[in-house]
Structure formats: C-alpha cells, structure tokens
C-alpha cells in the first residue's frame, strides 16, 4: 500500500526532502553548486526535460531567497550592478528557453542538455580539483571572503580582470569596491549566464560569481552578495516563464526546498568550523562524478540499457552523500576539538 499526501507518495516526498538536505548542505557550505545537481537527477529519474529544468529553476529560486536573506545584513549587495545583471540575464533566459523548446521540437533536448551538463560539471570539477590539489586557494568561494573588507578584496583582483577593466568602452559605471567597469562587459556576462540559466535550468551562480570576479573584477564579497540577489530574480523569472506552460512540478520543488533550507543552515554553520580547503577536493570530485553520471545515463539510452539509469542516479546521490558526509564529519571533529568557549553558537 502506498501512503500519499496530496496525491504524492510519501516515499517520493521523503526522498526529495533527503536529497534537498544534501544539496542544501553543499550550497550552504560552498556558497555554490548543489543546485545544478537537481536537473540531472530529475532527468535520470525519468522526468521530461522541461519539467526537470523548470522544477530545477523553481527550486533554485526558493533556495536563493533564503540565501539572500542571510546575506542582506552583511552589506555585500551592489543593487545597481544587480539590476543590470537582471536585465542581461532576463534576455539570456528568454533566448535559452526558446533554444530548449526548439531542441525539444527536433528531439535533441535531452542529448544536448545532458552533454552540456557533462561538459560544465566535468570542466568545473577539473578546475576546482586541480586548484585544490595545486594550491588549495582558488577553486571556489572562500568563506573568509564574507568577512573581508570590500576594498581589501579589491586588491586581489585577477590580472585578467585588470586587463579587461583597462578597455574603457563607454558608458562606464562605478561599482562597490571603488571600481569602474564598462556597462557592456556587465551586460555581456549577465546575458551569457542567463542563457545557461534558461537553457540548463540552473541559477547560473557557479558560472556568474567566478565571472564577476575573474572577468569584471568585482570584489569576492560583493560578487557573492550581488550574485545571490540576482539569482532570486533570474530563478524567479525563469521558473515563472516555465510555469506558464505548466512545467513546474510542486511535488518536486516543495520537499526539495524544505530539505535544502535545513541543509543550508547546517552547511552555513559548518563554514565556521571547517576550512573549505580541506573539503574542496571532495567538491571537485563530486562534480566530476556528476558529469560521469550524466554520461553513463546518455550511454545507457544510446545502447538501450535502462540499468545504467539506476547506476547514474546512484553515482549522483552517492557523490552528494560523500561530500555532505565529509562536511558533517569534519565539522563534528572540529567542534569536539574546540574548547567550550570557542565553539560558535550559530552561523548566522
């Protein structure tokens, strides 16, 4: 007998809530990632591409609302930059959405989205793992950055960003951190990340935040805060556009969000206990395993071996559990090694 709540099996709700805790823990700890594991997982589970993308976007929207609320008091949001990013991202999402629908019409959506995921997850996974093994310094969002002064952070602007900023194509605009950047560069980055957001059903944060820092030179703390502010709108607009076609499935979004909100708090609390560099290599490996999982699923479809779908899902969930488990174990270990007075009471 299958127990149901509002017509949805309790086991399915529990599974999504549990997966949400894992994803939220990763999102809360690393400040990025996690969300782009949702759409591949839904694809592996057999959901239609538009439902997987739309529900992934709606989940990203809800998660980013919670994350932005946590960061709003830190003064790390550049609203002017955020509004410009929203304008460019909206255009990108529209183009991405039409691109996905066109691919669905010609029957290539699943293949193209999956291949794009393999390339993105694998590429970023290699980048983060390589940097973690090399120096352990530049593969993701440093938690120390959140407590960093914006001007102090501006001194760490990458050379490539300084080069790009030297091309002063008017109109120019000033952003937090005392920088002046071409409006066109900002809109270009925003459009490109919006394109990915609409096409792949991701918030785009794992591309946009590094792009804001590496390409435009926005100080990391401001890039993180503004990115979160922007994801609220890009995720909201993207999911709204898909919801008009009835593609958002609340039976997926509601339990995922309930789980991820809890996981995000646990992950955020863990950031005050564990050095990110200790875990970063696990995160890179998890992304690589994610790309392998999508590739396995595609191969299974091509050679008509449905069992590979199950193998693929097991790899995705296993990878998330591996990294989440590493975060939790390291947090508890650190907590037990601290004297009572030094232990943090809360991450917020």
């Amino acid at each position: 007998m299958i127990v149901e709540i509002l017509g949805v099996a309790v086991s399915l709700l529990g599974m999504f809530a549990g997966f949400g805790v894992l994803i939220g823990l990763l999102f809360g700890f690393f400040g990025m990632g996690g969300s782009f594991l949702v759409t591949p997982a839904l694809l592996v589970m057999g959901y239609k591409t538009d439902v997987a993308v739309a529900s992934g976007l709606a989940f990203v929207f809800g998660t980013s609302v919670i994350a932005t609320l946590k960061h709003r008091d830190l003064g790390q949001v550049d609203y002017k930059l955020g509004v410009l990013m929203i304008a460019g991202t909206t255009a990108g999402i529209e183009v991405g959405k039409f691109g996905l629908h066109w691919l669905q019409d010609i029957g290539l959506a699943n293949t193209v989205v999956s291949v794009a995921y393999v390339a993105l997850l694998g590429g970023i996974g290699v980048f983060i793992t390589y940097n973690a093994l090399k120096s352990g310094d530049s593969g993701g969002v440093d938690h120390d950055a959140e407590g960093m002064d914006a001007e102090e952070a501006a001194e760490d602007i990458p050379d490539i960003a300084k080069k790009i900023q030297s091309y002063r194509i008017p109109p120019m605009m000033s952003i937090k951190g005392g920088l002046t950047v071409s409006l066109w560069m900002i809109l270009g980055v925003a459009f490109a990340t919006g394109l990915l957001s609409g096409f792949l059903g991701v918030g785009g944060g794992f591309i946009r935040m590094p792009a804001l820092f590496y390409l435009i030179g926005v100080p990391v703390p401001v890039a993180v805060g503004t990115d979160l502010f922007e994801i609220v709108f890009s995720g909201g607009i993207g999911s709204f556009l898909y919801a008009m076609d009835g593609a958002v499935d609340l039976a997926i979004v509601v339990p995922l969000l309930a789980g991820s909100a809890l996981g995000a708090r646990l992950g955020a609390a863990a950031t005050s206990l564990v050095e990110e560099d200790d875990i970063k290599v696990y995160f890179g490996v998890m992304l690589l395993l994610g790309s392998v999982a999508v590739a396995v699923r595609e191969i299974g479809g091509a050679i008509e071996m449905p069992v590979l779908n199950t193998v693929s899902l097991a790899i995705i969930v296993g990878a998330a559990m591996l990294v989440s488990g590493a975060v939790v174990v390291n947090s508890i270990r650190e907590l037990r090694s601290q004297p009572p007075t030094a232990a943090p009471q809360s991450a917020d």
Binding site: L6, G7, V8, A58, F61, G62, T63, V65, I66, G236, S239, F240, L241, A243, M244, D245, G246, V248, D249, L250, A251, V253, V254, L257, A258, A261, L262
Partner: peptide, 27 residues
C-alpha cells in the same frame, strides 16, 4: 500538488511561484 499546477498561464504561474516564495520565507 495542491492543485496549483493545473492553473497554467500568467495568473497560475504567479500563484505557483508565489507559493514557492512563501514556502521559502516560512522555512
């Protein structure tokens, strides 16, 4: 779920996204 998906179109989409927003705030 909740019967919200059945209401497609701009109004239905706004209600659905509003529900996700409310859930996020409550959580």
């Amino acid at each position: 779920m909740f019967g919200l998906e059945a209401a497609a179109g701009p109004t239905g989409a706004a209600i659905l996204i509003g529900a996700v927003l409310v859930e996020a705030l409550v959580l």
